[in-house]
Design a protein around this nucleic acid. Sequence first.
DNA 1: GTGGTCTAGACCACG
DNA 2: GTGGTCTAGACCACG
Lengths: 124, 124, 124, 124
Amino acid sequence: MVIRIDDYSDVPIYQQIRNQIVMGISDGRLAAGEQLPTVRALAIEMGINTMTVSKAYQILKSEGYILTDRKNGARVRPEMSKSGALSDANKWELKRIVSEARLSGVSKDELIGIIEEGYKEGEK
Amino acid sequence: MVIRIDDYSDVPIYQQIRNQIVMGISDGRLAAGEQLPTVRALAIEMGINTMTVSKAYQILKSEGYILTDRKNGARVRPEMSKSGALSDANKWELKRIVSEARLSGVSKDELIGIIEEGYKEGEK
Amino acid sequence: MVIRIDDYSDVPIYQQIRNQIVMGISDGRLAAGEQLPTVRALAIEMGINTMTVSKAYQILKSEGYILTDRKNGARVRPEMSKSGALSDANKWELKRIVSEARLSGVSKDELIGIIEEGYKEGEK
Amino acid sequence: MVIRIDDYSDVPIYQQIRNQIVMGISDGRLAAGEQLPTVRALAIEMGINTMTVSKAYQILKSEGYILTDRKNGARVRPEMSKSGALSDANKWELKRIVSEARLSGVSKDELIGIIEEGYKEGEK
DNA sequence: GTGGTCTAGACCACG
DNA sequence: GTGGTCTAGACCACG
């Protein structure tokens, strides 16, 4: 999976990496159990600091998205524990987006369309 | 309308203020043309610096959500120019949320429910 | 001549009044020697403070656009002393506008068109 | 590129900085992609506060003239999105200047000359 | 009384 | 080292 960084984004690089890996897992580009590149390899490939990649992996691990062991590096967690609930942060963020969309004259259906799409991708 | 700041959030205070005012406008708690508290009043009420409130207002102004005049302070803009399009940033953010929700086992309908709710509030 | 104030403009009200009167003189809506409304009358008509109108008139007087006498109030100066030169401030401001226009992809001809128009209006 | 501040101008310092950088980009003194001085460096060089420079940069960023990244500071944006339209504010300002120029006996051609010059500079 | 500007100085996250 | 955030406090123009 290709990870694409926007150097000029307000979102920190480690966060961008973390986000794209989560999205990759969700839409099936990264399979359960799949091996991730090593910190060093990814850092070199992207031309960034290893600390930055490492921070992204640490977050993914603490969130339960990946597993790491010293021998094999990191891989996508096979069985993810599903809380079944939307996090508070995401809930508020979603509400914010809906508010802005509505005020910009974006239709409800356009937002729903994006959601439908996100649940369709990588469907088994 | 009460504005509530989370001191432990990593979202800057001025951004939190900005977000809550936008959400207030969208859901009708702030009516078109309604007077906002003065910079000073809000700063005192919230126990923060006037510069911080001022920055929030200036962003809202530059985004077209509010108007300010020297005499009366700030008001919600009566007629807002609607771009009709979701911003790129919000689109990506929404996709990220959908990915995380899906991986947490949150149903598509729960997300759609939040959207429906956001479009219903303050409806005339 | 109708003077229209934008309460939400960053330009101070007295400056807006001053500008519109200068433009009125330039395009012929205000004739040389023509009587202006009294400070009081204009203030009441516009629903603003007399001090604000007074300040506008004082600037116009100091710039040589109008004459005032205690008896007759203010009127447009019949023979205006023409310096023949663009003020430094206006020259820089014009350069700024040209720079921004160019970077926005506005054609040279569009700017020239606005100038031609300004010199045509009220031509004798 | 040298930025020169007029302490006696009523144009705010951050606005003067912003204006001069825009003009520098337009006339080619600042090339696309070129590095700008860091906020701190420019503040020291000009003997002003970092907040003031920072505000100028943030405006330039929000207007799409520059990009900033955490590592390298600010650069002139390589490809600018061109609206193709003159802003309302600039249009009115231009009309005001034309009115004043005309009343001062400045010829139409002198104004056009300034425009031609502005579109010639930095031409490739 | 209103918002806007500016400073000195501290602290922070990112990389 | 970079930009970003926040504060306390001063001063200003406008109306």
